[in-house]
Design a protein around this nucleic acid. Structure first.
Lengths: 185, 185
DNA sequence: GATTAATTTCTCGTTTGTGTGACATTTTAA
DNA sequence: TTAAAATGTCACACAAACGAGAAATTAATC
């Protein structure tokens, strides 16, 4: 195979399922330029494809974000890198949330993806509280709102990119401007 | 009927289709507390239901936003009211975008929804440019980004509300803080 | 309470999506 | 050049979603 078909299917599935959870496998296969039969060779059924998507997301996205947080340096700079990492993950970051907050998601079950998400979420909140204590960001906002806002800005950047409304290079710059000012930096 | 069934179905459909475009009509009917048969009595098929959703959205959302822009007053205050109007429209505002930016949407066709969206979009951009010229908001950002950012903040407020992460009353306050600062007010 | 309208229930045929097997074709690598 | 691996094609069984008719039930109006 020229490029990893399995990976291509997963990437396509993430993109499609992100804005249409119950899109047909036919559509996924089509956009990934394979037959549905081929898709089924790699993934037994819908559930398995979804699981592969989760795993992929967790791997790329969660790791990138954790790495940014682990990276030592000026806290504000760290936060900036965090935003860029999330934007680089693009639609995967958005889907990470959706999966975790979808109706049929069981937060109690021993679920790797769930655990990864929760861990990231906790770290993020702690980080925010830390920045607030140091008076780097405003205390007028709750850490939870800032978390939501962070996701919102990432989504904005991703969708602005996909619609082509804003030049690629300005994207991150704008996102950081709006996010940092928006939390009182 | 206790409350307008047709309207209830439309509202439910908007909420459901917003996070799952191809959700079954069964699910919509169920959440609207009617039988699928009743749904079909009001809407011949999926297309017709979608059209009704579009129309409803256009009516409520577009009008509210236009009203906010028509409202005379201090530009910054006007912008604030605009944000609140969009948040009040809630999930409808988000769906307005999705419908307009979905793949099978034909921007060229003589489509009322499309025209309404475009008109609102144009007015918003003009308004932003105007504010930039008056040096009320920063010129570092493009009007298009600010438009995307606006939508992003609205989405953030709506989703933060639905997940219950942030207290209802603080929602708009936080949203305005983050948005206004984020565009350099 | 009778009348009318709205809704449900049950049913049916049709369409669309899903999962799989058998086999042909293409691509990759030895 | 050829064997193996990957992908495509066709066909099938099955489930789910769809759209609609007819009768029964419930709610609203007078």
């Amino acid at each position: 195979m020229l490029v990893d078909t399995k990976q291509r299917i997963v990437d396509t599935a993430i993109a499609i399922f992100n804005d249409d959870q119950s899109a047909s496998l036919e559509r996924v296969a089509e956009k990934a330029s394979v037959t549905r039969r081929t898709l089924h060779r790699y993934f037994k059924d819908r559930r398995e494809l979804l699981a592969a998507c989760s795993k992929d997301i967790r791997k790329r996205c969660s790791e990138a974000i954790t790495a940014a947080l682990d990276n030592p340096g000026d806290p504000a700079w760290q936060l900036e890198q965090l935003l860029y990492a999330a934007i680089d993950c693009g639609v995967k970051y958005a889907f990470f949330h959706k999966l975790h907050h979808s109706e049929d998601h069981d937060h109690r079950s021993a679920n790797d993806d769930c655990a990864a998400y929760e861990a990231m979420h906790r770290r993020f909140l702690q980080f925010i509280v830390h920045l607030q204590e140091q008076a780097i960001i405003t205390k007028h906002l709750t850490a939870e709102w800032i978390y939501c806002f962070f996701s919102g800005v990432v989504n904005t950047a991703v969708s602005a990119d996909s619609t082509g409304a804003v030049a690629r290079l300005s994207q991150k710059q704008f996102a950081w401007f709006s996010f940092s000012k928006g939390i009182g930096i």
